[in-house]
Simulated scan of single mutants.
Amino acid sequence: MSDEVERGCGLVPVQYHQFEIGDEEGPAGPDLAREHNGLVRVADGAITVMTGIHTGEIDVTVTLHDTAPAPAPAPGNGDWQEIVEISAHSPSGELTIRGVMDDLDEELPVLSFQGPGDYRLRIHARGRDTAVDLAPDQVTEWYLIQAWPARPSEVKVVRQTDHYGASVRRG
């Protein structure tokens, strides 16, 4: 079990069903097709998390850990519907979450909190089936991103239960 080093949460802007995780100084990971797992893809070195909503804001919590934590239970009612682990590289030590076209109103913790190097990201999602293709005025999707230093390893799909993810996997 891992002790949590830092936690932060905030609203992240979404456009075109996505928000990004990246490092301005280089690729964060090798290419991974969007159909692979329905939640996370990597193209041209940028990590993209796919959302059910087309446009709007989602609630994102980031937790940083010294070692691999257990997958987290979902807050409130229900469970995380999709959970995927991927490896990420940060050349600059500034691996961050960002909107595709808009900046975040509040900064979330830097995922590469121990500086340049390799990290593991476990991305949890719930609510992606609630407002598919819409632009809701209120938050309908929640995400948790757990990060810890780790050597690169294969993508691991922990859970796949939402309908939106299934539709993305079908291509």
Rank of each mutant, 00 (worst) to 15 (best):
N37K: 03
H124T: 08
D105Y: 14
I53L: 15
V84G: 01
V157S: 11
G10H: 04
I58Q: 01
M101W: 07
G117N: 08
A131K: 09
G38L: 10
P116S: 07
A28G: 10
V12S: 02
R151Q: 08
I97G: 03
A68L: 13
G115K: 13
P71I: 08
T61N: 09
A43F: 14
Q81T: 15
T96E: 12
V110L: 12
W148C: 06
V84Q: 01
E24H: 13
A88Q: 05
L121P: 00
W142E: 07
Y164P: 00
D103M: 14
D118W: 07
I83S: 07
L121F: 00
G127L: 10
V139S: 05
P27Y: 04
Q114E: 14
D137K: 08
G115H: 09
L134E: 15
V158T: 09
Q160L: 15
A74K: 14
D162F: 06
V84W: 01
R169V: 12
E82Y: 03
Q18E: 13
A68T: 08
I86D: 01
M101C: 15
L64P: 01
V14A: 05
R34T: 08
P109I: 11
Q138S: 13
L64E: 03
S92E: 08
Y164V: 04
G38W: 02
A28H: 02
D118H: 14
Q138W: 11
G76F: 07
R170A: 15
E85W: 00
T67W: 05
Y119N: 04
H124D: 06
T51F: 08
P71Y: 04
G8D: 13
V158P: 02
D59A: 14
A46Q: 08
H124K: 11
E24R: 11
H17F: 14
Q114R: 15
T96Y: 02
L39T: 08
P109V: 12
L121Y: 00
K156W: 07
N77Q: 10
I21W: 00
D102C: 15
P27T: 15
I58C: 05
H124M: 10
L104Y: 10
E85R: 03
G45A: 09
A28D: 03
A147N: 02
E85Y: 00
G117V: 12
D23H: 01
E82K: 06
P109Y: 07
E141P: 01
T51M: 07
D103G: 12
R170Y: 06
H54Q: 11
D129V: 14
E154R: 12
